[in-house]
Design a protein around this nucleic acid. Structure first.
Length: 597
RNA sequence: CGGGGAGUGGCUCAGCCUGGUAGAGCACCUGGUUCGGGACCAGGGGGUCGGAGGUUCGAAUCCUCUCUCCCCGACCA
C-alpha cells in the first residue's frame, strides 16, 4: 500500500505560464511530469505509474496477435541507407557519430531494423505470417515540440510490423490490428474514432488513424454523423453541389477583359458579378523531389489550379505530384515558371510538362474544375482576366487530381447518404497502415513460396503513442479542479483520504479500509499526510484518481463517503460495505466507457 | 526555418519606459493556535535579475551579441 506521506507527488497550486492546453497544465500541476527541455520531459511517480498501466494494457492485447521484441534505440546508418531514409528522414532524425566517426542515429521508427531481421532470418512462406512488436522509446527532432506530452522529441511508442506472403495475408494482419487497437483504446477509456488517413512519407496504401476528439489536437477530422464516414481532412473527400455556370459572352470562347486592380479572388468575383466558384485560382509551389540513390534532391515548379472558393490541400497535392516537400514559390521562381504577375495567373496558354516534377512546370488541376465551362481565369497579364474559359478545351494539364480541402457543411461522399460533413480537431493516438513492399523490397527481404519461387513479403506497420493515450484521456475528462482517469489507466484506483490524522479513530479506519481495498485487488493510495482536509481534497481532485473515500467524522459511527470524481457525486457507505461498493463502481464505470466508445 | 512573445527566489508575477542598495503572494523552515474544500499569528531561510560584452560614477533597467523556453505556420505516435 502506498502512503501519500511518503511519496513524491509535487502538486502545484498554479500551472507554469508555459502550459496552455489542459493536459499539459494538469500533468504538471498533478506532479506527473516535469519539463527538462523543449519536448523533453521527466516522468515522475504518478506519471510513470499511469504510463505503466497503459503499457500493461497494450502489451496484454498485443500479445494476443503478436510477439514482443525489444530493439535498440541507437541505430547504425546502414539499414537507413538501404531503405533510402538516411536522407529521406531529413532533419527529424537525431544523428550522432561514434568515436570512430561512424554515423549513428536515434531510432524514430523501426521499419528498417525489423525488416533487416526478416531479411536475415525468414526463408520460407511457411514462416509467415509474422507480427513483431515492441514498446520502446522513440526520438524525433521535431521542428516544433508543443502542448506538453502531445508533441515531444522523446516518447514511448508501441510499434508493430507484419510480414505476409500476399495481400490477403496483409489484409488479415491489418484487420487483426484494427480489432486489437479498438480493444486497447476502449480499455483505456478513450472515446475514439477510426478514420481514413493519408499514408504520407512512409509509403503504402490503406491507412487508418485512431483519433480522439479534442481542441488540443493538431489534426482535423471530417466526419458524417449520418453514415459514420470519417477521414482526416488530409484525405477527406466530399460531394459538391452543382454550380450554376455563367452565361457565355460573344462566341463563347475565351475573351480578354480589362480588370484593373483585381488581384484577389473577391475582387474578381465582384468585378464579374460571379460566385468565386466560377473563378479559377492559381497557387504556385516549389516541390521537392527526393533523388533516388546517387541522385541529388531537386526542386520543381508546380502550379495548382482550383476553384476560387476552395483551399489547396497540400498533403493531397504532394501525393498527386510525388513530392517530399512543398513550399510556396518565391519572386524569381514565379518569373521562371510562369508568365504573369501574381494575382493574374491563369492556366490558359501555360506550357507544362507531360509528367510531374520534370524540368518545366507541373500543372495540377483540381477535379472540381473538370467539365466546368464559362469560367474566369487570370490572363497571365497584369490587370487582365479571361472569361468563357473551359478546362480541357482552353487549357490542359499535367495532372487532374483531387487537391482541395473539404469544408464543413459539404455533402457526405458516401453513396446514398444525405448527411453533411462536420469538421473537428482531434489527436492521433494510433495509426495502422499497409506498407506494401517498400521496405521488404528495398532491403531485399525474400522468401520462397510453395512453388519454390522467390517472393517479397508484404508488410504492414502499426503504431500507438503511449503518452498520447494519457494526454487524450486527460483532455477528454477534466474540469477546473483537475482531471479524472479511467480506473484502468489511473495511477491509483482509489484514494483513501483520512481527513484528520490527529484523530486515532480516523487514522485506524483509513488504514484498515486501505488494507481491505488492497486485499480486494484494488490499487490504493492512503492519504495519511498531516495536512488540512481541504488540502487533501484539492489534491485528490487534481491528480486523476477516479474514486475517493473520505474518512471523516462519520467514521466513528462506521460510515465513510465514497466520492466518484467524474460525477463529483458522494454517497455515504458503511465501512464494512466499502470494498464491495467500490468494486462494483469500478466495474460499472468500466462498462460505461466501453459502451460509449 | 520564417513570424510573435517571455526569461527577476521552487511557482505566479511586479519593478524596466524615466538607471540610484531587488519586491509581493503562494511554497519552504521554526514556534504557537487551528483542523471537511488549498488556515491564522509571530519569526526565519532563499535571488550573481538566462549568459557574455559594452555605455555609465552607478545597470534587473540603456545598447550589442548569444542561449533557452512558449505561441502561430511546413511534420507525425
Amino acid at each position: 500500500m502506498h502512503r501519500w506521506s511518503k511519496l513524491f507527488v509535487p502538486t502545484l497550486r498554479e500551472a507554469p505560464a508555459d502550459a496552455e492546453v489542459a493536459s499539459h497544465k494538469f500533468l504538471l500541476r498533478a506532479g506527473y511530469i516535469r519539463q527538462l527541455g523543449a519536448g523533453i520531459y521527466n516522468y515522475l511517480f504518478l506519471g510513470q505509474r499511469s504510463l505503466n498501466k497503459i503499457i500493461g494494457i497494450v502489451r496484454e492485447e498485443m500479445d494476443q496477435i503478436a510477439q514482443e521484441f525489444y530493439l535498440p534505440g541507437i541505430l547504425p546508418r546502414e539499414p537507413w541507407e538501404q531503405s533510402g531514409r538516411w536522407t529521406g528522414m531529413g532533419d527529424n532524425m537525431f544523428r550522432l557519430k561514434d568515436r570512430k566517426g561512424a554515423d549513428l542515429c536515434l531510432g524514430m521508427t523501426h521499419e528498417e531494423i525489423m525488416t533487416a531481421i526478416a531479411r536475415n532470418e525468414l526463408r520460407s512462406y511457411k514462416q509467415l505470417p509474422q507480427i513483431w512488436y515492441q514498446i520502446q522509446t522513440k526520438y524525433r527532432d521535431e521542428p516544433r515540440p508543443k502542448s506538453g506530452l502531445l508533441r515531444v522529441r522523446q516518447f514511448t511508442m508501441k510499434d508493430s510490423y507484419s510480414f505476409d506472403i500476399d495481400k490477403a495475408g496483409l489484409d488479415k494482419s491489418f484487420d487483426l490490428h484494427d480489432a486489437v487497437y479498438r480493444r486497447i483504446f476502449t480499455r483505456c477509456g478513450l472515446k475514439f474514432v477510426a478514420v481514413e488517413a493519408d499514408s504520407g512519407a512512409m509509403g503504402g496504401s490503406q491507412s487508418q488513424e485512431f483519433m480522439v476528439y479534442t481542441d488540443a489536437g493538431e489534426d482535423l477530422i471530417a466526419s458524417c454523423p449520418k453514415c459514420g464516414y470519417a477521414a482526416n481532412t488530409e484525405k477527406a473527400i466530399s460531394r459538391l453541389e452543382p454550380v450554376t455556370e455563367m452565361e457565355p459572352t460573344g462566341d463563347g470562347t475565351p475573351e480578354l477583359v480589362h480588370t484593373p486592380g483585381c488581384a484577389a479572388i473577391a475582387d474578381v468575383a465582384a468585378f464579374f458579378q460571379i460566385s468565386p466558384a466560377s473563378d479559377i485560382k492559381c497557387v504556385a509551389y516549389m516541390a521537392l523531389k527526393r533523388g533516388a540513390a546517387g541522385e541529388k534532391d531537386s526542386w520543381h515548379g508546380v502550379a495548382a489550379f482550383l476553384r476560387g472558393d476552395h483551399q489547396v490541400n497540400e498533403t493531397k497535392l504532394m501525393g498527386a505530384v510525388g513530392a517530399a516537400e512543398l513550399r510556396t514559390m518565391q519572386g524569381e521562381e514565379l518569373a521562371q515558371y510562369l508568365d504573369g504577375p501574381a494575382g493574374y495567373l491563369g492556366p490558359v496558354g501555360l506550357k507544362h510538362d507531360a509528367k510531374p516534377l520534370g524540368d518545366g512546370l507541373t500543372v495540377v488541376v483540381d477535379l472540381s474544375l473538370q467539365g466546368r465551362r464559362n469560367l474566369v481565369a487570370g490572363a497571365n497579364k497584369a490587370d487582365y482576366h479571361l472569361r468563357n474559359v473551359a478546362p480541357g478545351r482552353d487549357f490542359t494539364w499535367t495532372l487532374l487530381a483531387d487537391i482541395r480541402c473539404v469544408n464543413e457543411g459539404e455533402a457526405c461522399p458516401t453513396d446514398g447518404c444525405a448527411g453533411t460533413l462536420v469538421v473537428g480537431k482531434a489527436v492521433e493516438v494510433g495509426h495502422i497502415f499497409k506498407l506494401g513492399y517498400k521496405y521488404s523490397e528495398s532491403m531485399g527481404a525474400r522468401v520462397l513460396d510453395p512453388n519454390g519461387k522467390e517472393v517479397t513479403p508484404i508488410m504492414g506497420s502499426y503504431g500507438i503513442g503511449i503518452e498520447r493515450i494519457l494526454t487524450a484521456a486527460i483532455e477528454q475528462s477534466n474540469d477546473t479542479n483537475g482531471f479524472w482517469l479511467p480506473a484502468s489507466i489511473a495511477p491509483f484506483t482509489v484514494v483513501v483520504t483520512v481527513t484528520n490524522v490527529a484523530d486515532a479513530t480516523l487514522r485506524e479506519t483509513g488504514e484498515k479500509l486501505a488494507a481491505e481495498l488492497e486485499a480486494a485487488g484494488l490499487d490504493v493510495l492512503l492519504d495519511d499526510r498531516d495536512e488540512r482536509a481541504g488540502v487533501k481534497f484539492k489534491d485528490a481532485d487534481l491528480v486523476g484518481i477516479p474514486y475517493r473515500i473520505n474518512v471523516g467524522k462519520k467514521a466513528a459511527s462506521g460510515v465513510v463517503e465514497v466520492v466518484t470524481r467524474s460525477r463529483a457525486s458522494s454517497v455515504d457507505v458503511a465501512v464494512h460495505d466499502v470494498v464491495t461498493h467500490v468494486k462494483s463502481r469500478v466495474e460499472e464505470d468500466a462498462l460505461l466507457t466501453a459502451v460509449d466508445a
